[in-house]
Protein backbone atom coordinates (compact mmCIF):
# COMPACT_ATOMS: atom_id res chain seq x y z
CA UNK A 1 0.00 0.00 0.00
CA UNK A 2 1.25 3.42 -0.93
CA UNK A 3 0.45 6.72 0.74
CA UNK A 4 -1.67 8.95 -1.46
CA UNK A 5 -0.83 12.52 -0.36
CA UNK A 6 -3.33 14.13 -2.69
CA UNK A 7 -6.16 12.15 -1.11
CA UNK A 8 -5.23 13.58 2.30
CA UNK A 9 -6.13 16.98 0.90
CA UNK A 10 -9.31 15.69 -0.75
CA UNK A 11 -10.39 14.07 2.51
CA UNK A 12 -9.41 17.17 4.48
CA UNK A 13 -11.69 19.36 2.40
CA UNK A 14 -14.59 16.93 2.66
CA UNK A 15 -14.18 16.46 6.39
CA UNK A 16 -14.25 20.22 7.00
CA UNK A 17 -18.01 20.02 6.57
CA UNK A 18 -18.31 17.93 9.73
CA UNK A 19 -16.54 20.48 11.95
CA UNK A 20 -19.78 22.22 13.00
CA UNK A 21 -21.24 18.94 14.30
CA UNK A 22 -18.16 18.26 16.39
CA UNK A 23 -18.13 21.83 17.66
CA UNK A 24 -21.83 21.75 18.53
CA UNK A 25 -21.38 18.62 20.58
CA UNK A 26 -18.31 20.03 22.31
CA UNK A 27 -19.78 23.44 23.04
CA UNK A 28 -23.16 22.15 24.25
CA UNK A 29 -21.62 19.52 26.50
CA UNK A 30 -19.05 21.95 27.92
CA UNK A 31 -21.59 24.72 28.59
CA UNK A 32 -24.26 22.46 30.10
CA UNK A 33 -21.52 20.53 31.90
CA UNK A 34 -20.19 23.76 33.36
CA UNK A 35 -23.60 24.68 34.73
CA UNK A 36 -24.13 21.18 36.16
CA UNK A 37 -20.57 21.17 37.50
CA UNK A 38 -21.00 24.54 39.22
CA UNK A 39 -24.25 23.43 40.88
CA UNK A 40 -22.69 20.16 41.99
CA UNK A 41 -19.59 21.91 43.31
CA UNK A 42 -21.69 24.37 45.34
CA UNK A 43 -23.91 21.57 46.66
CA UNK A 44 -20.81 19.70 47.78
CA UNK A 45 -19.14 22.74 49.30
CA UNK A 46 -22.20 23.88 51.23
CA UNK A 47 -23.20 20.28 52.04
CA UNK A 48 -26.81 20.94 51.01
CA UNK A 49 -29.00 18.35 52.75
CA UNK A 50 -30.60 15.69 50.51
CA UNK A 51 -28.79 16.94 47.41
CA UNK A 52 -25.33 16.34 48.86
CA UNK A 53 -25.37 12.50 48.71
CA UNK A 54 -26.94 12.67 45.25
CA UNK A 55 -24.18 14.96 44.03
CA UNK A 56 -21.46 12.75 45.48
CA UNK A 57 -23.07 9.66 43.94
CA UNK A 58 -23.34 11.34 40.55
CA UNK A 59 -19.69 12.36 40.50
CA UNK A 60 -18.30 9.00 41.62
CA UNK A 61 -20.52 7.00 39.23
CA UNK A 62 -19.83 9.14 36.18
CA UNK A 63 -16.12 9.46 36.83
CA UNK A 64 -16.00 5.75 37.55
CA UNK A 65 -17.46 4.71 34.20
CA UNK A 66 -16.30 5.39 30.62
CA UNK A 67 -17.81 8.12 28.49
CA UNK A 68 -18.79 5.54 25.87
CA UNK A 69 -20.80 3.66 28.50
CA UNK A 70 -22.70 6.85 29.37
CA UNK A 71 -23.57 7.34 25.72
CA UNK A 72 -24.79 3.76 25.33
CA UNK A 73 -26.78 3.87 28.57
CA UNK A 74 -28.50 7.09 27.47
CA UNK A 75 -29.00 5.81 23.94
CA UNK A 76 -30.70 2.62 25.06
CA UNK A 77 -32.14 3.76 28.40
CA UNK A 78 -33.61 7.15 27.61
CA UNK A 79 -36.10 5.95 24.96
CA UNK A 80 -37.49 3.38 27.41
CA UNK A 81 -37.91 6.10 30.02
CA UNK A 82 -39.34 8.70 27.62
CA UNK A 83 -41.81 6.29 26.02
CA UNK A 84 -42.86 4.95 29.42
CA UNK A 85 -43.57 8.41 30.80
CA UNK A 86 -45.16 9.50 27.53
CA UNK A 87 -47.61 6.58 27.42
CA UNK A 88 -48.63 6.79 31.10
CA UNK A 89 -49.34 10.50 30.73
CA UNK A 90 -51.01 10.01 27.37
CA UNK A 91 -48.63 12.23 25.40
CA UNK A 92 -48.09 11.70 21.72
CA UNK A 93 -44.34 12.30 22.10
CA UNK A 94 -42.21 9.33 21.14
CA UNK A 95 -38.51 8.72 21.60
CA UNK A 96 -38.19 8.18 17.87
CA UNK A 97 -38.44 11.95 17.38
CA UNK A 98 -35.30 12.62 19.43
CA UNK A 99 -32.50 13.39 16.95
CA UNK A 100 -29.41 11.23 17.23
CA UNK A 101 -27.24 14.17 18.16
CA UNK A 102 -29.62 14.81 21.08
CA UNK A 103 -28.38 11.62 22.76
CA UNK A 104 -24.82 12.85 22.36
CA UNK A 105 -25.71 16.26 23.84
CA UNK A 106 -27.41 14.72 26.86
CA UNK A 107 -24.90 12.03 27.66
CA UNK A 108 -21.79 14.14 27.09
CA UNK A 109 -23.25 16.97 29.18
CA UNK A 110 -23.68 14.50 32.03
CA UNK A 111 -20.12 13.30 31.57
CA UNK A 112 -18.70 16.81 31.39
CA UNK A 113 -20.73 17.89 34.45
CA UNK A 114 -19.06 15.33 36.68
CA UNK A 115 -15.54 16.17 35.57
CA UNK A 116 -16.12 19.89 35.59
CA UNK A 117 -17.61 19.84 39.08
CA UNK A 118 -14.15 18.93 40.31
CA UNK A 119 -12.56 21.66 38.21
CA UNK A 120 -14.96 24.25 39.59
CA UNK A 121 -14.50 22.97 43.12
CA UNK A 122 -10.74 23.27 42.85
CA UNK A 123 -11.22 26.81 41.56
CA UNK A 124 -13.47 27.75 44.45
CA UNK A 125 -11.04 26.24 46.96
CA UNK A 126 -8.28 28.37 45.45
CA UNK A 127 -10.10 31.54 46.53
CA UNK A 128 -9.04 32.68 49.97
CA UNK A 129 -11.74 32.58 52.64
CA UNK A 130 -10.89 36.17 53.50
CA UNK A 131 -12.33 37.28 50.15
CA UNK A 132 -15.77 36.01 51.12
CA UNK A 133 -15.46 37.53 54.58
CA UNK A 134 -14.45 40.88 53.14
CA UNK A 135 -17.45 40.79 50.82
CA UNK A 136 -19.72 40.01 53.77
CA UNK A 137 -18.09 42.75 55.79
CA UNK A 138 -18.99 45.40 53.22
CA UNK A 139 -22.58 44.22 53.49
CA UNK A 140 -22.96 41.93 50.49
CA UNK A 141 -25.28 38.96 50.69
CA UNK A 142 -23.76 35.52 50.04
CA UNK A 143 -25.15 35.30 46.47
CA UNK A 144 -23.79 38.78 45.71
CA UNK A 145 -20.43 37.85 47.20
CA UNK A 146 -20.25 34.63 45.20
CA UNK A 147 -21.20 36.33 41.97
CA UNK A 148 -19.08 39.46 42.26
CA UNK A 149 -16.05 38.34 44.24
CA UNK A 150 -15.65 34.57 44.48
CA UNK A 151 -16.69 33.29 41.04
CA UNK A 152 -14.52 35.64 38.96
CA UNK A 153 -11.46 34.66 40.96
CA UNK A 154 -12.39 30.97 40.94
CA UNK A 155 -12.87 31.10 37.17
CA UNK A 156 -9.47 32.67 36.67
CA UNK A 157 -7.88 30.03 38.89
CA UNK A 158 -9.57 27.12 37.10
CA UNK A 159 -8.97 28.34 33.56
CA UNK A 160 -6.08 25.94 32.77
CA UNK A 161 -8.16 22.98 33.97
CA UNK A 162 -11.24 24.20 32.12
CA UNK A 163 -9.29 24.36 28.90
CA UNK A 164 -8.19 20.77 29.54
CA UNK A 165 -11.84 19.80 29.95
CA UNK A 166 -12.80 21.50 26.70
CA UNK A 167 -10.03 19.69 24.83
CA UNK A 168 -11.06 16.43 26.49
CA UNK A 169 -14.66 16.89 25.38
CA UNK A 170 -13.58 17.87 21.87
CA UNK A 171 -11.69 14.62 21.51
CA UNK A 172 -14.30 12.62 23.38
CA UNK A 173 -17.00 13.83 21.04
CA UNK A 174 -15.71 11.37 18.44
CA UNK A 175 -17.59 8.67 20.36
CA UNK A 176 -20.80 10.15 18.95
CA UNK A 177 -20.21 8.08 15.80
CA UNK A 178 -21.46 5.03 17.73
CA UNK A 179 -24.96 6.53 17.67
CA UNK A 180 -24.65 7.43 13.98
CA UNK A 181 -23.80 11.09 14.41
CA UNK A 182 -21.51 12.24 11.61
CA UNK A 183 -18.75 14.15 13.36
CA UNK A 184 -15.21 14.71 12.08
CA UNK A 185 -14.14 11.16 12.80
CA UNK A 186 -17.24 9.54 11.31
CA UNK A 187 -16.93 11.73 8.26
CA UNK A 188 -13.34 10.56 7.79
CA UNK A 189 -14.55 6.98 7.85
CA UNK A 190 -17.28 7.72 5.33
CA UNK A 191 -14.91 9.54 3.01
CA UNK A 192 -12.43 6.68 3.15
CA UNK A 193 -14.93 3.87 2.71
CA UNK A 194 -15.40 4.82 -0.94
CA UNK A 195 -11.80 4.03 -1.85
CA UNK A 196 -10.35 2.31 1.25
CA UNK A 197 -7.78 5.02 1.89
CA UNK A 198 -8.45 5.02 5.62
CA UNK A 199 -4.99 6.11 6.69
CA UNK A 200 -5.10 9.25 4.58
CA UNK A 201 -8.59 10.13 5.77
CA UNK A 202 -7.80 9.64 9.46
CA UNK A 203 -4.60 11.62 9.00
CA UNK A 204 -6.67 14.50 7.62
CA UNK A 205 -9.04 14.16 10.61
CA UNK A 206 -6.05 14.22 12.95
CA UNK A 207 -4.82 17.49 11.44
CA UNK A 208 -8.24 19.03 11.86
CA UNK A 209 -8.45 17.97 15.52
CA UNK A 210 -4.96 19.25 16.12
CA UNK A 211 -5.85 22.57 14.54
CA UNK A 212 -8.98 22.90 16.66
CA UNK A 213 -7.04 22.05 19.80
CA UNK A 214 -4.39 24.66 19.01
CA UNK A 215 -7.18 27.17 18.55
CA UNK A 216 -8.63 26.33 21.97
CA UNK A 217 -5.21 26.61 23.59
CA UNK A 218 -4.58 29.94 21.91
CA UNK A 219 -7.94 31.28 23.03
CA UNK A 220 -7.40 30.09 26.58
CA UNK A 221 -4.06 31.78 26.85
CA UNK A 222 -5.57 35.03 25.58
CA UNK A 223 -8.44 34.84 28.08
CA UNK A 224 -5.99 33.86 30.80
CA UNK A 225 -3.88 36.92 30.13
CA UNK A 226 -6.91 39.17 30.35
CA UNK A 227 -8.41 37.57 33.43
CA UNK A 228 -5.19 37.28 35.35
CA UNK A 229 -4.13 40.87 34.87
CA UNK A 230 -4.45 41.34 38.61
CA UNK A 231 -2.24 38.40 39.37
CA UNK A 232 1.48 38.42 39.46
CA UNK A 233 1.25 34.69 38.95
CA UNK A 234 2.08 31.84 41.25
CA UNK A 235 5.53 30.36 41.40
CA UNK A 236 6.00 30.56 37.65
Amino acid sequence: MKLDPSFIWTAFVQILGAIPTTLYITIVSVLVGFVIGTCVALIRMYKVPLLYPLAVGYVTFIRGTPMLTHLLLIYFGLPVLVDGVSSTLGWSFSSASIPMIGFAYISFSITAGAYMSEVVRAGLLAVDRGQLEAAHSVGMTTPQALRRIVFPQALAASLPNLSNSVIGMLHGSTLAFTVSVVDINAKAQIVASTNWKFFEAYLAAAFIFWGLTLLIERMTSLIEKRMNLYNRGGVA
Binding site: G130, Q131, E133, A134, S137, I149, Q153, A156, Y230
Partner: peptide, 10 residues
Protein backbone atom coordinates in the same frame (compact mmCIF):
# COMPACT_ATOMS: atom_id res chain seq x y z
CA UNK B 1 -8.67 42.92 58.34
CA UNK B 2 -5.25 41.86 59.54
CA UNK B 3 -4.56 40.32 56.12
CA UNK B 4 -6.17 43.32 54.31
CA UNK B 5 -8.44 41.00 52.28
CA UNK B 6 -8.76 43.41 49.41
CA UNK B 7 -10.68 42.00 46.46
CA UNK B 8 -7.73 40.67 44.50
CA UNK B 9 -9.29 40.97 41.06
CA UNK B 10 -10.26 44.61 41.51
Amino acid sequence: FQQYNLFRHK
